[in-house]
Design a protein around this nucleic acid. Structure first.
Lengths: 209, 209
DNA sequence: GCAAAGTCTTGACGACTGTCAAAGAACGGG
DNA sequence: CCCGTTCTTTGACAGTCGTCAAGACTTTGC
C-alpha cells in the first residue's frame, strides 16, 4: 500500500510540504475509518486509534473536526475525478466505451464500497450541516462533468447527440449507482450485475441518433 | 394541527390503543425533530424537549433509540405510500397524469423538505447500521411500486409499454428527486422548476410507443 | 374508597465526545 | 554541544449521550 507521505528521493521534505504530507496521511487514515463507520459514528479518537498517530496530533494539524472532514472530502474528490477518463480517451467504438464504462463502474462499486457509502452519507449530512455543503456541491459538479464527458463522447462515437442535459444525465446515472451501492451494502450478491443490466438499459435512451 | 392521538368520541380508548396512540404521538414529534436535525444530531432528550413529554416517557414506550427511530421510519412509510395514488386513479389522459405527477412531486419537495432530507439521511445510515436496513428496504420497495404504478399507467394511457423495469424506473426517478432535494436544501430558488423540466425530459424516454 | 396496576417525573450512572493546555521528545541552526 | 523551534504525547475539562431505577402521580378494577 503506497502512502502519499513518502519522502522525496533526497530524503528531505520542505517544511510546508511536510505538514501537508502529514495532513494527507491523516486524511487517508480518517477516510478509512469514515468509510467503515460513517460520518455520525466516527470520532476523532477513533480516527486516531486506527492510525499511527495520537488524538492530539489530529488537532495539531486540523483546527477542528469539520476542518478534518472537509479536508478529507476535498482530498477524496481529487481521486474520483479522473476515474473514467482513461476509458473515455482510449475507447474508439461505442461498444468499447460502453463496456469500459460499465466495467469501471462495477469495479469501483466492489472495490471502493466504503468510499461510496461515505460519499452518499456525507451528501446527506450536507443537507443538515452547511459547513459541508460547499465541498459536496463541488464534488457533485465534478461527477456531473465526468458523466457528461462519457455520454457526449459516447454519442459522438455513434454520430449522435445526447438527448438530455448534463445535470439530468448525472442524476439518472447517480440514481442507478446509489441504488446499487445501497443494495450492495445489504447483500453484495448480484448487485453489480444488476447495475450493469440497468445502466445498459438506460444508456441508449440518453442519445438521439 | 390534528394529532393522531385524539381520543374516540366515547372519550375512552382501550389499553392497547392508548399506548399505540402515545407511540404515534411520540413518533410524530420525533419525526419533526429528526427532519430538522438529521439522524446523527438528534438525541432522545432533544426529541423529548421538542414534545410535550419528558425524556423518561420516551424510554417507557420504546426499548431504545433504534426502536424509536425504527418505529418512526415505519410510521413515515405509511404516509408516503399512497401519496400519488389519487393522481393515478383520477387521470384520464397521459398529459393529465404527467402534469399531476409533476405537480405532486414539486409539492412534496417544497412542503415536506424535512421529511425527504431525513429519508435520504436514513437510507445512508442504513448502510452503516444494519438495524435500520430492513425498514429502509421496505420503504424503497414501496416507493418502487409507486413509481411503477405511475409509469405503467402512463404507458397504458398512451397505448404503449414501459421500456424499463420497475427497479430501473425507480432508480432514475429517485436520482432526479434526490438531486432536487439536495439542491433545494442548498438554495430553494428554482429547484422545483428544474426538477419538473428534468422529469419531463426523461419520462417520455421510459416508454416505447 | 382502597389496593393494584399503569403511567410519568426526576435524578443519577458511566461512557463517550470535541477541545485544549501543559509537559515532554525530536530536531535543526548556531 | 546547546538552545529555540517544531512536533507529539498525555491527561484533563466541560458537555452530551443512552440508559435505567426509584419514587410520585394517575387510573383502573373490585
Amino acid at each position: 500500500m503506497s502512502s502519499a507521505a513518502d519522502v522525496t528521493p533526497a530524503g528531505r521534505v520542505s517544511g510546508i510540504d511536510k505538514i501537508e504530507r502529514r495532513r494527507i496521511a491523516l486524511a487517508e487514515s480518517a477516510l478509512k475509518t469514515l468509510g467503515e463507520l460513517g460520518y455520525a459514528r466516527t470520532s476523532l479518537r477513533e480516527i486516531a486509534n486506527n492510525s499511527e498517530f495520537t488524538h492530539g496530533v489530529v488537532h495539531y494539524y486540523f483546527r477542528d473536526k469539520i476542518d478534518l472532514i472537509s479536508y478529507c472530502v476535498r482530498y477524496y474528490k481529487t481521486k474520483c475525478a479522473q476515474r473514467y477518463d482513461e476509458v473515455v480517451e482510449t475507447a474508439t467504438t461505442p461498444d468499447e466505451l460502453g463496456a469500459g464504462f460499465l466495467a469501471k463502474m462495477t469495479q469501483t462499486l466492489v472495490e471502493e464500497t466504503a468510499m461510496h457509502r461515505l460519499w452518499y452519507d456525507l451528501r446527506a449530512q450536507s443537507m443538515f450541516e452547511e459547513q459541508l455543503r460547499a465541498d459536496v456541491v463541488a464534488i457533485d459538479q465534478l461527477l456531473e462533468e465526468m458523466i457528461w464527458r462519457i455520454l457526449s463522447r459516447y454519442a459522438e462515437l455513434l454520430g449522435a447527440k445526447p438527448s438530455v442535459d448534463a445535470a439530468t444525465a448525472y442524476a439518472l446515472m447517480d440514481g442507478l449507482f446509489e441504488q446499487a451501492v445501497v443494495a450492495f451494502a445489504d447483500d453484495p450478491t448480484g448487485a453489480p450485475e444488476r447495475l450493469v443490466q440497468r445502466v445498459g438499459q438506460v444508456l441508449p435512451k440518453l442519445i438521439t441518433t
